Amino acid sequence: MPPTPTTRLTTGSDAPADQPSAPTARTLIGVIFALTAVLLVMLCAFALPSVNGGPHHVPLGLTGPQQATQPLQNGLDRDAWDVTVYPNPQALQTAVKQREVVGGLALGTGGLTVYTASAAGQQTSAAINALGTAMAARQQSKATVQDLVPFPADDPRGAGFTATAFPMLIGGILPAIALLRLFPGHANLRRRLAGVTLFALVAGAAVAAVLQYGFGSLHGTYWLTALGLSLGMAALSIPFLALESLLGFAGLGVGAAVMMLLGNPLSGLAGPYWLPTGWATLGQLLPPGASGSLVRALAFFDGTGAGRPVLTLAAWALAGLLAILIADRRTARGPQPETTSVAAI
């Protein structure tokens, strides 16, 4: 008779080697705490700038008799307002239009005139208006408000402009991811670089056309605004490609997270002086904030104040190009992978 097969009980250690092991309870707890930490970081990144929002070293102009301006200057919060005194209302108006100050108060015998520039920041302009109204009430007079640099009549609150930060950020991330999928590998590195550059030019022109001619949110020279938007997108997508070339998809993920969690909430499109000073400075050094400042300068102030954001964005783009060249040379000098012929197999 043939031998009877014996039944053998297997334990977890006897399972096939190719069967994946189930995550342990320790792994589950670690994942839960890691996800909670990410959620808290996102909460702080988006909520803290709003919670601590308010006037922070806002450049404010004053003009009028010294016996009226001096007590007001002494009574203002120095952490909130940086005051400059001008000889007459005309000089103050010029200073607002040239972005030396974002608004001002003109004190005179006929009452008080409040000069604002809502295109420089809606919240800051509202704070200056409230300051002037309160001062006029104490003097039992009336405040007259003149918005010297307003948003266009079709979008008087600047909603279209302030909403551009997130689309511009996505416009920097998506083309990098799409081109990495379509043209993977070191051999397609230059093709990806050409692709993101072309996308930035086309997308910048399209976004500027929609904002200016579709929504009526911008005015100024269309092509300059379009080039500003294109430079902002290139300053995001080229460094993303560089991070992927150096560190793989992990580098792309880290770069996207930094721009999402810091660049977007600190962009200052509603007015950089409404953020705490250190946060505002950091936001203007990142591509989303620099892009917003550049578009604001080109679309509303005839290019005044565009120099610094142009240099910031160009530095990001050039740093990305340099990193891509480093990755290109490092890969070219590396050991070539061995090829095995089909016949040998």
Rank of each mutant, 00 (worst) to 15 (best):
245 S>K: 07
178 A>N: 04
210 V>A: 14
229 L>K: 13
177 I>W: 05
50 S>D: 05
177 I>M: 15
323 A>L: 15
295 V>L: 09
210 V>W: 08
187 A>W: 00
43 L>G: 11
299 A>E: 07
332 A>K: 05
319 A>Q: 01
51 V>A: 05
272 P>N: 08
296 R>Y: 00
162 T>R: 07
31 V>K: 13
318 L>C: 09
252 L>Q: 00
243 L>Y: 01
28 L>E: 15
76 L>D: 02
67 Q>H: 02
221 T>L: 09
302 D>H: 05
330 R>Y: 08
9 L>K: 04
280 A>P: 00
217 S>T: 11
120 A>V: 11
254 V>E: 09
98 Q>D: 04
224 L>S: 14
2 P>Y: 03
327 A>D: 01
139 Q>K: 09
148 L>D: 08
14 D>L: 08
201 L>R: 02
343 A>F: 04
140 Q>C: 03
239 P>A: 02
253 G>H: 00
264 N>K: 08
341 S>N: 12
53 G>S: 11
98 Q>W: 14
300 F>V: 06
116 T>N: 03
8 R>M: 11
148 L>S: 12
220 G>T: 05
249 F>L: 13
53 G>K: 08
3 P>A: 14
97 K>A: 07
18 D>C: 08
225 T>C: 03
127 A>F: 00
235 A>K: 09
40 L>V: 10
234 A>D: 04
105 L>T: 06
229 L>E: 12
42 M>H: 14
128 I>H: 05
128 I>R: 03
157 R>H: 06
184 P>E: 01
24 T>E: 13
46 F>E: 07
149 V>C: 04
138 R>E: 07
210 V>L: 15
262 L>G: 13
190 R>S: 14
159 A>E: 09
70 Q>S: 14
90 Q>A: 09
322 L>V: 15
171 G>S: 10
149 V>W: 00
293 S>I: 10
115 Y>R: 06
64 G>E: 00
276 P>M: 06
135 M>N: 12
223 W>T: 02
137 A>Q: 11
277 T>W: 11
237 S>R: 07
5 P>D: 11
220 G>C: 05
253 G>T: 07
142 K>Q: 08
320 G>S: 06
175 P>M: 02
87 P>T: 05
258 V>G: 14
175 P>K: 09
83 V>Q: 10
209 A>N: 10
265 P>C: 06
110 G>L: 06
318 L>V: 15
80 A>C: 11
184 P>L: 07
320 G>T: 05
84 T>D: 06
319 A>T: 11
50 S>F: 04
151 F>L: 10
147 D>V: 01
191 R>A: 08
95 A>Y: 13
164 T>E: 15
314 A>I: 07
324 I>W: 02
10 T>L: 13
275 L>A: 03
52 N>E: 13
322 L>Q: 02
133 T>L: 13
28 L>Q: 13
155 D>F: 11
178 A>D: 03
26 R>M: 14
107 L>R: 01
171 G>T: 04
175 P>H: 04
60 L>V: 02
272 P>F: 15
322 L>H: 06
118 S>A: 15
268 G>R: 00
278 G>C: 01
89 P>S: 01
285 L>S: 13
